[in-house]
Simulated assay, not measured.
Amino acid sequence: MTSAPASPGHTHGQHTQTPGYAARKADHLARLSKIEGQIRGISRMITDDRYCIDVLTQISAAGRALQEVALGLLDDHVRGCVTEAARADPAQAEERFAEFSDTLRRALRL
């Protein structure tokens, strides 16, 4: 797995503050490592010709685990990036709220 070079802040657009998830970065990475292991396990299940329902159950569990990471990141974003923007600059706050709303719409497929 290749990662992008580290930066001091956001890489989307002109965001330069510390990411909202900075305090829980290690937790998020640990969860993602577990999910990677789940995905490798699913691949092994298919290689080993395991029962379809068992494979689908594991795929569902991995999907839920990714959703939990996403929810954690959204929470971090609201508590960090959006809140900070609201305190600092009304125009930036409006941008962050719009960005957050768009993200939720995509996540919920609305």
Rank of each mutant, 00 (worst) to 15 (best):
G72P: 04
V78W: 01
T83K: 06
A62V: 00
D75E: 13
G80I: 12
A65I: 00
Q92P: 05
I59Y: 01
L66S: 07
A93D: 14
V78D: 07
A86Y: 05
V69F: 04
E84R: 06
P90N: 14
T83M: 10
V82R: 03
F97M: 15
E99Y: 03
F97G: 08
V78Q: 04
I59D: 01
Q67W: 00
A70S: 11
S60H: 09
A91G: 11
V78E: 06
V82L: 02
V69T: 08
H77C: 05
L74W: 07
R64E: 02
A88T: 15
E95T: 11
R79G: 01
Q92E: 14
R87K: 12
V69E: 05
F100D: 11
Q67G: 04
I59E: 03
A86C: 14
R96A: 12
V82M: 00
A93T: 14
E95S: 08
D89G: 11
T83W: 06
A61C: 02
R79M: 05
A85K: 10
A65Q: 01
A61W: 01
E68M: 03
D89T: 11
E95D: 08
D89Q: 13
C81E: 15
I59T: 03
L74Y: 08
L73D: 03
A62W: 01
A91M: 12
G80F: 13
A88E: 15
L74E: 07
A62T: 02
A70P: 06
S60E: 09
A61Q: 04
R87C: 10
D75Y: 07
E99Q: 10
A85F: 13
A91Q: 11
A98Y: 09
R96V: 06
D75V: 04
V69I: 09
R96F: 13
D75K: 07
L74A: 13
A86N: 09
D76N: 12
V78C: 09
E84Q: 08
A93G: 15
D76V: 08
A98V: 14
A62Y: 00
Q67C: 04
R64P: 02
C81M: 13
D75H: 10
Q92A: 13
A65H: 04
D89R: 11
L71M: 07
L74N: 09
A86I: 06
F100V: 10
L73C: 09
G72V: 02
F97T: 12
V78F: 08
R96S: 10
A70N: 12
R64C: 00
D75S: 10
D75G: 12
E95N: 09
T83R: 09
L73F: 02
G72H: 05
E99A: 08
A88F: 09
A93L: 15
L66A: 07
A93Y: 15
G63A: 04
A86H: 07
L71I: 03
L74R: 09
A91K: 15
L66F: 07
L71K: 07
E94R: 14
A62S: 06
V78I: 13
F100E: 11
T83Q: 11
G80R: 06
E94Y: 12
E95G: 07
E99D: 13
V69N: 01
A70W: 06
L74H: 10
G72S: 09
E95W: 10
L66P: 07
A61R: 04
V82P: 02
E84P: 03
Q67F: 01
A62P: 02
G72Y: 03
I59R: 04
E95L: 10
A98R: 15
L66E: 07
D89C: 15
V82D: 03
G63Q: 01
